[in-house]
Write a protein that binds this DNA or RNA. Structure first.
Lengths: 296, 296
DNA sequence: TGAAGCTATGAAAATTATTCATGAGGTGTG
DNA sequence: CACACCTCATGAATAATTTTCATAGCTTCA
């Protein structure tokens, strides 16, 4: 019934004082305005104004509608503007999912310039997914997945960001300390600490132990990276960590890294996005910033 | 840019889950909705939803717009409804102007059933007018003028409501007390109290004293009816009052009424309204209630 | 009293919205 | 896995609405 046009006409009549002037401001003819408002009057039954000589006097209904116009039109105009901002990527939320537990510090270094570049955009980081990061990406729970294990799937596009080597870390008193590399068998009498994830997602199993049909002496899981490191530092067992993180923690903790196998386990962090979002401005910016971030 | 139709479509899509179902609910075809929304997307640049299999998934911009739709549509619908109420006379404000100082109590007896009959309508009473009641009526400051002195003018219609006789009131010890009537000369040595209005609007001057080229001994003005009455009761002077009010006050104050001249001064209270409002439902009701109110 | 300004209105023209017809997927079932 | 059945997008045709044009009626002002 009542349309944006009616509100605009009424507001402009108040501002300019006459139908003719309002018509000019709206790039329409006086006749168009007259017809439009007449139709509203017929539809609602209410008279909006009466003519007195050459001036229009708003009725009570007209005054009421004018108040509503002055209240609602700015809101509609704000919607137009925000829609444009969404279109330009100036507004929105980038939901980032993390499947790489130790990558958090690296992520913060990417998010910082991203936020600076897109002041209107929010960033949220999620680290727990009921059905895994890929499912979360499909669900639209997240828009970007940070993972060392890309899964090729229709509709998802992965971009490599930086390579790293996964290392074994041992304490000061470990017999493995100082070796050039270790073989799978050498873990048979060790306690292995990992994050509490499926062994299918643990490279030390998939790429090192299982191919050699080996297993660690014992496998214990812990949530927090810091606690795992404390355990290793206390010579209570061994763990794996990206090389770049070892360097960081080795400055403050008595831990040492050893290559896993003669060739080592070489990994790469990937960013996964839905193909349909790949051209999205936020997403592109984020991937570019991630790619150019100083390698950790 | 954004129109009510867009908001309606989006809300209906959310409610029904599909474009087709939404189209049914809006009595349109699926094609119409698709075209309409596509046009909005092209105009704003923002994508509102993406197809995933057979379901539509709102983008962030779409979610935003949906929130706005759920917020704004009820407001627009309320406007439609209120406009209809204005049309039906179920809503509005009746501004009543009083040029008859002592009529206030009578007015209250008319307003009461009026408010009961029109629960959505407000009543406001004004008693002071910078340029007089007629001007206020022309200005739309008031919608109804209660006055004993109708002025015939184009665009204003008057309806007589009830007749009354204007009486002189005197105190217990007044020499005029108990007379059948008085002549103008008999006021020459009296103090006359009136409301502070132009003598042109005082009947005792216009219809009694001036035709006989007389004047009161002294003329003092007071705002409040009660104070005037106190003065008369204290035998400090005389005043005029409608007969029906004398009866009321005489119960509690030592005052008495005397006819002004052999024939008395006979007046009639009128209601004035703008001709254009004469058919207005509120106004008609008010006039009818006033006419049928038990004579004071 | 005449010129100029403003609005309302009917008819014509222009624009916009809607439908129709169809195609391109996706879903589910036997 | 083929087939029926959905759903949505799209171009062209059609319907409806909006806008303009032309004009008349009033009012104001000099």
């Amino acid at each position: 019934m009542i349309e944006r046009a009616h509100l605009r006409i009424l507001r402009e009549i108040e501002r300019r004082g006459s139908l003719t002037a309002a018509a000019g401001a709206l790039n329409l003819t006086q006749s168009a305005l007259s017809h439009t408002m007449k139709k509203l009057e017929q539809g609602s039954g209410a008279t909006l104004w009466t003519r007195e000589g050459r001036l229009l006097r708003l009725t009570q209904a007209g005054e009421y509608l004018l108040r509503e116009a002055n209240r609602l039109l700015p809101q509609l105009e704000r919607i137009d503007e925000l829609l444009r901002q969404y279109a330009e990527g100036e507004k929105g939320t980038l939901n980032i999912g993390m499947e790489c537990h130790p990558c958090y510090q690296w992520l913060l270094r990417v998010v910082e310039p991203f936020l600076a570049q897109w002041p209107g955009v929010e960033v949220d980081v999620k680290q727990r997914f009921q059905f895994g990061g890929m499912a979360a990406l499909f669900n639209h729970e997240i828009d970007v997945l940070v993972t060392p294990d890309p899964i090729v799937r229709e509709g998802i596009r992965f971009e490599p960001v930086f390579p790293y080597e996964q290392m074994l870390i041992v304490g000061d008193e470990s017999p493995l300390r100082g070796l050039d590399h270790i073989e799978p068998q050498q873990l048979s009498d060790q306690v292995l600490y990992t994050y509490p994830v499926d062994t299918e997602r643990l490279d030390i199993y998939q790429q090192f132990l299982l191919p050699a049909h080996c297993a660690p002496g014992k496998h214990k899981v812990l949530e927090a990276t810091e606690i795992i490191l404390q355990m290793v530092a206390a010579n209570r067992g061994v763990a794996t960590l990206p090389q770049w993180l070892v360097e960081e923690y080795a400055r403050t903790l008595p831990i040492h890294s050893v290559r896993l196998g003669r060739e080592g386990i070489h990994k790469q962090i990937h960013l996964g996005v839905r193909s349909q979002d790949a051209e999205n401005l936020h997403v592109r910016t984020f991937i570019e910033l991630a790619g150019s971030s100083s390698m950790p």
